[in-house]
């Protein structure tokens, strides 16, 4: 691998409009640079050698975290993993997203890397994505032709291939406020060491009726166990509208495993998916029950 980058022409647009103009002008020869923690490695490995680099951290209005009960959570694409992991409102209301962003890479990578970059990289093991899948995040994509909103579960097409078009820019991640009395969590195993890529990651979001203990809704998002991050929809069905117990959780975990299709270390990844799904559902279930108890008290 080379240590240095090949020459390119460099732009620092100040507005989204300027940025998308540049992207549409240069097409596939241009690459968007944000935190650089994925892009620059690919450039050093000469997997990509863009002729034009459009640095978007120069656009001030894309780095924010806004929340209101009605509008939900809006995260600018340039919010860093550190900003999200440390955000008081996200830790309080979207804890599964905060913990997922707190798991990405190393402290330095989290300081540099952005949530938009993590999503647009489109790899199978992007840690922020399972939580976004279960939170039913929507992505705001802007091009010269205007903006479109794409649900995140329609965004990932194949490994490192997304619905993002050539001259489009992801500007915002929109996350609706989860219903009251819901809870969630993100669990993962790393491949080898503590700070390492995920071997498997599981996000769970659950809505439980406090009166009858019935699971009104359950969503399971997975990463690193299929060509793209996925929802384990059949496993969700196992628990939806059922009264939860441990054997049902076990069954959901088994079904989730069937929904995976890992490539390397396949047997182990599958087995670990089962463990993580079970743990994530159990932990979420406990959280909700405690929430209910607190409310009653």
């Amino acid at each position: 691998m080379a240590r240095l980058l090949k020459p390119f022409e460099y732009f620092e647009p100040r507005t989204v409009e300027e940025a998308v103009q540049l992207l549409s002008k240069y097409g596939h020869q241009a690459k968007v640079l944000a935190g650089g923690t994925d892009l620059l490695i690919s450039m050093k490995k000469r997997k990509i050698t863009p002729q034009y680099v459009v640095y978007i951290k120069s656009i001030p209005e894309l780095d924010y975290i806004h929340y209101s009960q009605q509008a939900g959570l809006k995260i600018g694409a340039l919010a860093t993993h550190t900003a999200i992991a440390d955000s008081a409102i996200i830790k309080d209301k979207f804890e599964l997203l905060a913990s997922a962003c707190g798991k990405v890479g190393t402290p330095q990578v989290r300081n540099m890397g952005t949530i938009g970059g993590n999503i647009c990289e489109g790899g199978p093991s992007q840690d922020s994505v399972p939580s976004l899948l279960v939170l039913e995040a929507k992505l705001k994509l802007i091009s010269l032709h205007g903006e479109r909103i794409v649900p995140i579960d329609e965004f990932f097409i194949a490994p490192f291939k997304t619905a993002l078009q050539e001259a489009e820019l992801l500007t915002e991640i929109q996350i609706p406020t989860p219903p009251p009395r819901s809870a969630g969590c993100y669990k993962w195993f790393t491949k080898i060491t503590t700070v390492d890529e995920s071997l498997a990651g599981v996000a769970v979001l659950m809505l439980l009726d406090s009166t009858d203990g019935i699971c009104r809704d359950l969503k399971i998002g997975l990463c690193s166990v299929a060509p793209t991050p996925i929802r384990a929809r059949r496993a969700e069905q196992v628990l939806r509208d059922k009264k939860i117990d441990n054997s049902l959780i076990e069954r959901a975990a088994r079904v989730a495993v069937e929904e995976t299709s890992p490539r390397s270390r396949a047997d182990y990844r599958k087995r670990m998916t089962g463990v993580l799904v079970r743990e994530a559902i159990s932990e979420t279930w406990q959280k909700i029950r405690q929430l209910h108890l607190r409310e009653r008290a």
Binding site: M1, L33, T37, I41, K44, T106, Q108, V109
Partner: peptide, 29 residues
Amino acid sequence: QSCGIGHCGACTVLIDGIPTLSCLTPALT
């Protein structure tokens, strides 16, 4: 410079006080 891919932290500098990998940062940024 030690690994060149942002995994070892030897190139860490502080940019506005924040630990940043100088091996993955184009200087102009």
